[in-house]
């Protein structure tokens, strides 16, 4: 499967090159209006200029910071609530409908309210990201703990485990598998939270850069911002993959079996 993927790489790259080339040519010959569609060479020049002058770094840093904070806070809350709900049927029974409603709510409508409450800075974006990340981690933790093999618990109990030992040796590692399985989604959502929050109101960050460019009909700026954002997302995703590999080292090669 991996071998197949690598064999396809030249074709995949070929598609990208062909599209970019076609865009460049059509824009240069004015078949496409560069005012509306910009052109690859201009976009590349803009990106080079951003990095050359260093003006982009503070935006990248802000977005990265918001993403990390939103993920950590959302994950911590999700794990804590997931544990509590999975271990207490009363708690999950009472709050279940409220969680369902909260999760069904389109969270984007909260972004302006958070700006109102927490201001234009980092905090409002983090709060917004948390509402996205929390539910993913919460549901996975809950599921991971409910799905623990009863026999694993019984066996560990027979070996002398107290309830606290069970959390450490069985419940948490078991939930971790589920949490990590959704890591790409939850980190992705933290990033979405940061960018959307910035887009809707802020003074820095990649979302802000794109919103600014749009405000002045600077299509080159919009596409340059989108390109930087895409590369940033890929880098984050790669980092997540590396972390996942490390934490799930015990599963290497078993992934296909289970």
């Amino acid at each position: 499967m991996t071998a197949g993927r690598f064999r396809l790489l030249p074709y995949q790259a070929g598609v990208l090159v062909a599209l970019v080339a076609a865009w460049q040519v059509t824009a240069q010959r004015r078949w496409l209006d560069p005012f509306f569609f910009s052109m690859p060479s201009a976009i590349a020049a803009r990106i080079v200029q951003w990095f050359g002058s260093g003006s982009i770094y503070r935006h990248l840093w802000t977005t990265a910071l918001e993403t990390v904070l939103a993920f950590l806070a959302g994950a911590a809350l999700g794990v804590a609530f997931g544990f509590a709900f999975a271990r207490s049927p009363a708690l999950s029974g009472i709050f279940d409908p409220y969680l369902k409603i909260a999760n069904a709510l389109p969270r984007v409508v909260l972004a302006p309210i958070f700006t109102l409450w927490f201001g234009l800075g980092v905090l409002s974006k983090v709060a917004f990201g948390v509402t996205l990340v929390f539910f993913i981690v919460f549901f996975n933790t809950y599921q991971g703990i409910r799905e623990v093999d009863r026999n694993l618990l019984d066996n560990t109990r027979m070996l002398g485990a107290t309830e606290r030992d069970l959390v450490r040796h069985v419940l948490f590692p078991s939930a971790l598998v589920w949490i990590l399985s959704s890591l790409h989604t939850s980190v992705g959502l933290a990033l979405v939270g940061a960018v959307v929050g910035e887009y809707l109101g802020s003074g820095r960050g990649l979302g802000y850069v794109i919103a600014q460019a749009e405000g002045t009909f600077d299509t080159t700026g919009v596409f340059a911002g989108m390109t930087v954002l895409a590369i940033f997302t890929l880098a984050v995703d790669l980092a997540v993959t590396l972390i996942e590999r490390r934490l799930l080292a015990w599963k290497q090669g078993a992934a296909e079996q289970t």
Partner: peptide, 25 residues
């Protein structure tokens, strides 16, 4: 001690860590 009908080794622990579990507990 109880040897279960099912496989009950903790999949995230090595053979050594699984055997160490009892003494650690």
């Amino acid at each position: 001690a109880y040897l279960f009908q099912q496989d009950v080794l903790l999949p995230w622990k090595t053979a050594l860590e699984n055997v160490m579990l009892g003494p650690l507990l």
